[in-house]
Design a protein around this nucleic acid. Structure first.
Length: 685
RNA sequence: GCGCCCGUAGCUCAGCUGGAUAGAGCAUCUGGCUUCGAACCAGAGGGUCGGGAGUUCGAAUCUCUCCGGGCGCACCA
C-alpha cells in the first residue's frame, strides 16, 4: 500500500512543481522521516530547488505547503527541519486499505512476455555444498519476488554434463574403481531402492531425500550416489596431482563424453558412464534442492548445445559479424579469439595477445564462453534453433521438470514452450564476473545490443569457511590460512560442507528443540515442524547477507535459532496465528481511529503496509536481503506489540476487535513475506 | 601489473536513488514467565563509518588518492 501511496505523492508533487514553477526534476526522492511522529513521508526536494529558485529552502517549502492540494489519502503536509516537506497519511484510510486488499496496486509487471532466471548450475559430478545452496536460494527467492510482482518466470538449471568435472569422476569409475556401465547402473538403482526402503521404514525424513535422523539409522553416504562421487572426485584429483601422466585419462575421457554414446567407431561405454553419473547426480541435486523448497522448470544440458549444433550456429553468426577472428600467430595460434576491445570497455588499449579471449581451441573444441553465448542467444530467442524435450522428473504436486534432448518425448504431454524470454537473469558467483562480461560483449559484438542489455549477471560472492569451521571439519590448515578471515572450499580436494549434511544437522537441532517444547506431539509431527524450522533457518541465513558479502560460514552462526534468524520471524507468525485461532467469533471492523492515535500501533500498521515496497526495492536492486531484513523488522515490531498489548483479554470489545484485525493484517503480511523467502510457517514451534 | 569487490560497535553484518540524532543480531551487564507460548520483551554500556583530500546547503553513501584484505585476469567451467 505504501508503494502506491508513495507513487501518488510523488506524482502530486511533480505536478505541482510543474504547474507552479515550471520545474521538472529528473528525480524526486521520497523518504521516511527519522521518527513516526514527524510524518509518514519526507521529501527533501526544496533543498535542491533552493539553488534554481534562489530562495531559502524553508521559504519554498512553506509556499508549497500553502498552495498544494493533496489527494484524500493524505491528512496534511508541513515544513520541518529547515526545508523538508513532511507528509502525514490519513490513518483510517491506510487501515481500510490494509483490511480490504492484500496487494499493493503499485506493484506492476515490468517485463513483457517471459523472464528466465537461471540458477543452481551445479556440475553434476558430486554432492552440492553450501556455496551451491547460496546460489539456489538467491535465485529461487528472486524468482518468487518476480512472480509476486506478476512476472511470468521460467526457471532453468543449466547442466554441464560434458565438462571436465564429470569426466574426472568417470575417470574414477574407469581406472580407480573400474566399473562397466551395467554394474554402475545397478549400483545406482540399488542405492535408490535402499533409500526408498529406509524412508518407508521411517528411518529417514520425508521423501524424496533421505536424512539419517535416528542415531541408529545408517549414515547418509550409504544412500547417496552424489556423496560417493564427492569422494571419488577428490581421489581422482589427488591422483592427477601425484601422477601427472594420468592426466591423459582425462582428455581421452572428455573427448569420448563430448562425442556421445552413439559415436561411430567406439563402444560408447565411457559416454554411457558419463550419462549415468550426470543423470544420477542431477537427481540427487534436485532432491537436495527440493528439501529447501527450490524447484525448476527446465534443465538445459550442455550435451544438447553441442549435439543439436547450437554452437555451430552461434559460431557462424560470430564469424559473420567478425566478432571473433582466427589467430595466426602467438600463443593463441590456431584459436578463434574475441578481442576484449570488442566489449567497448577498453577501446584505448593496444590489442595485445593477453587481451584476447579464446572461444574455439586450436583442436576445434569450444570453450565455456562460446557455449554460453549460444545458450544466451537461445534463451533470448535469437539463435534460430530449438531443443527437443523429455520429462526429467515430477514433483509431488504434479509439476514436471523437463530436460533438453536430441529427440522429442514420445509421450502424450507436449513440452511447454521454453526459451524466448524478454529478459534473462543468470545467477552466477562473482568469481565469474570476467567471463560473464565476455559473454555479454559477445552479444554486443553480434549486434544484439538490446539483448545484451537484458542479459543480466546476477552476481553474488562465494561462501567460504571460517578457519575455525575448517578445523572443526577435520582439515589441517597452513599457519597462513589459519590467520585468514576465511578459507575457500574446494570440490577438488573434497573440502567443504555438504548441503545435505548441513540440513541434517539443522533438522536434528530443530527437532530436538521442538521435542522439548512440544513433548505431547507425535514424533512425526515434531519432525515435520523441525524440518520447516531448519529450512527457515538455512534460507534466512543465506539471504540476510547482501550479495556482495563473502559469507564466512560457521556452524554456530548457521545453527542459531535466536535473534536475527528465520525461526525468529516464524515464531512471530506462529504467535499471530495462535491469537487468531484462539479468538472466537468473526473479525469485525472495530473502530481504528482512536487506536491508531497510538503512534506505536500506527507504526506497526505502516510497516505492515510496506511489504510490497520492500519487494519492489528487492527486485530493482536485485537484493533479496532487503526483503529478509523487512520480514525480520516486521516480526520484531510485532513481538514488541505482542508484549505490550494483550489482545484476547482486552475488556473493551471494540478495541479488542481492532487489535484482532491488526494481528490479522500483520499475520498476512508476515506469511506473504516468509513465502517470498521460501520459508514455511510451522503450525506450532 | 590490470580489472572487480570489501573495510561501519568486542564479533557478524544492515544502512534503498546523497538528507534530519549512524542501526540490528551476537557477546557482556540488568530486569521481566499465575500472561494470546520466554525460539520472546525491556533497559545499559560500546562507533573520529580504514586514513587523507575534493564535490555539495548536506557525505557512511559520489569523485580522487593512499593503506589493509579478498577474488579474478587459462586452449577449466
Amino acid at each position: 500500500m505504501l508503494l502506491s501511496l508513495e507513487n501518488l505523492l510523488r506524482a502530486t508533487l511533480l505536478a505541482h512543481l510543474k504547474k507552479t514553477y515550471d520545474l521538472e526534476p529528473a528525480q524526486l526522492a521520497v523518504a521516511q522521516p527519522p521518527q513516526a511522529a514527524m510524518g509518514d513521508f519526507a521529501c527533501p526536494i526544496c533543498f535542491e530547488l533552493a539553488r534554481t529558485l534562489r530562495r531559502a529552502p524553508a521559504k519554498i517549502a512553506e509556499e508549497i505547503v500553502a498552495q498544494i492540494v493533496l489527494p484524500s489519502a493524505f491528512n496534511r503536509i508541513e515544513v520541518a527541519g529547515g526545508g523538508y516537506l513532511n507528509v502525514f497519511l490519513r490513518r483510517d484510510f491506510l487501515w481500510q486499505q490494509m483490511v480490504t486488499a492484500s496487494r499493493d496496486a503499485g506493484l506492476q509487471v515490468q517485463f513483457p512476455g517471459k523472464v528466465i532466471v537461471e540458477h543452481t548450475n551445479i556440475n553434476p559430478n558430486k554432492a552440492a555444498h553450501i556455496g551451491h545452496l547460496r546460489n539456489a536460494v538467491l535465485g529461487d527467492t528472486f524468482v518468487r519476488l518476480l512472480r509476486h510482482r506478476g512476472e511470468q518466470v521460467e526457471v532453468q538449471n543449466y547442466i554441464d554434463n560434458t565438462g571436465v568435472q564429470v569426466a574426472d569422476v568417470v575417470v574414477g569409475f574407469e581406472h580407480l574403481e573400474p566399473m562397466p556401465p551395467a554394474a554402475l547402473a545397478a549400483d545406482i538403482a540399488a542405492l535408490q531402492r535402499l533409500r526408498a526402503e529406509a524412508i518407508k521404514a521411517g528411518h529417514l525424513s520425508p521423501p524424496p531425500h533421505c536424512v539419517a535422523l535416528a542415531p541408529e539409522a545408517p549414515p547418509r553416504p550409504t544412500f547417496s550416489f552424489d556423496y560417493r562421487c564427492w569422494d571419488l572426485y577428490a581421489r581422482v584429483s589427488q591422483t592427477f596431482e601425484q601422477r601427472p601422466e594420468s592426466l591423459a585419462w582425462r582428455s581421452s575421457t572428455l573427448q569420448a563424453i563430448e562425442a556421445g554414446p552413439d559415436a561411430p567407431g567406439t563402444a560408447g561405454t565411457t559416454a554411457q558412464l558419463g550419462e549415468l553419473v550426470g543423470t544420477a547426480v542431477v537427481h540427487a541435486h534436485l532432491a537436495t534442492m527440493q528439501r529447501i523448497n527450490v524447484r525448476y522448470d527446465l534443465l538445459p544440458r550442455e550435451s544438447e548445445i553441442l549435439h543439436l549444433h547450437f554452437w555451430d550456429t552461434a559460431f557462424q553468426l560470430l564469424k559473420k559479424s567478425a566478432a571473433i577472428r582466427l589467430e595466426s600467430s602467438g600463443k593463441n595460434a590456431g584459436c578463434w579469439v574475441m578481442d576484449k576491445a570488442g566489449s567497448g570497455v577498453e577501446i584505448e588499449t593496444e590489442p595485445e595477445a593477453g587481451d584476447a579471449k579464446v572461444i574455439v581451441r586450436s583442436n576445434g573444441t569450444v570453450t565455456y564462453v562460446g557455449k554460453d553465448i549460444a545458450y544466451q542467444l537461445w534463451k533470448l530467442g535469437l539463435l534460430g534453433r530449438e531443443f527437443q524435450y523429455q520429462p526429467f522428473s515430477t514433483y509431488p504436486d504434479g509439476h514436471t521438470v523437463w530436460t533438453t534432448a536430441s529427440t522429442a518425448a514420445s509421450g502424450a504431454v507436449p513440452a511447454p514452450a521454453f526459451g524466448k524470454a524478454s529478459a534473462v537473469f543468470n545467477v552466477i558467483d562473482a568469481r565469474q564476473n570476467y567471463l560473464q562480461e565476455v559473454v555479454v560483449a559477445g552479444l554486443r559484438a553480434l549486434g544484439f545490443d538490446q539483448a545484451a542489455e537484458h542479459s543480466v549477471h546476477f552476481s553474488y560472492e562465494m561462501v567460504a569457511l571460517t578457519p575455525r569451521c575448517a578445523q572443526e571439519l577435520g582439515y589441517t590448515l597452513s599457519t597462513a590460512d589459519a590467520k585468514r578471515p576465511y578459507v575457500q572450499v574446494s570440490g577438488r580436494r573434497g573440502f567443504g560442507v555438504k548441503a545435505d549434511d548441513l540440513l541434517d544437522r539443522l533438522i536434528m537441532n530443530a527437532w530436538q528443540q521442538v521435542a522439548q517444547r512440544q513433548p505431547e506431539l507425535a514424533v512425526a509431527e515434531q519432525l515435520d515442524l523441525g524440518i520447516t524450522i531448519a529450512v527457515g533457518a538455512l534460507r534466512y541465513f543465506l539471504l540476510k547477507f547482501t550479495k556482495s558479502t563473502v559469507i564466512a560460514f560457521d556452524f554456530a552462526e548457521a545453527l542459531s535459532f535466536e535473534g536475527e534468524t528465520g525461526p525468529y520471524v516464524q515464531y512471530a507468525a506462529v504467535r499471530a496465528a495462535n491469537i487468531l485461532r484462539k479468538q472466537s467469533g468473526e473479525l469485525t471492523a472495530g473502530n481504528p481511529a482512536s487506536l491508531l492515535e497510538d503512534i506505536a500501533l500506527w507504526e506497526l500498521v505502516r510497516l505492515a503496509a510496506r511489504l510490497d515496497a520492500a519487494v519492489e526495492t528487492a527486485i530493482i536492486s536485485r537484493e533479496p536481503a532487503h526483503l529478509a531484513r523487512y520480514a525480520f523488522q516486521l516480526a520484531q515490531e510485532f513481538n514488541n506489540f505482542y508484549h505490550h498489548h494483550p489482545v484476547l483479554t482486552e475488556a473493551n470489545l471494540e478495541r479488542r476487535a481492532t487489535l484482532l484485525q491488526l494481528v490479522a493484517i500483520v499475520e498476512r503480511q508476515l506469511n506473504t513475506a516468509l513465502g517470498l523467502l521460501g520459508i514455511g510457517v510451522p503450525r506450532a514451534m
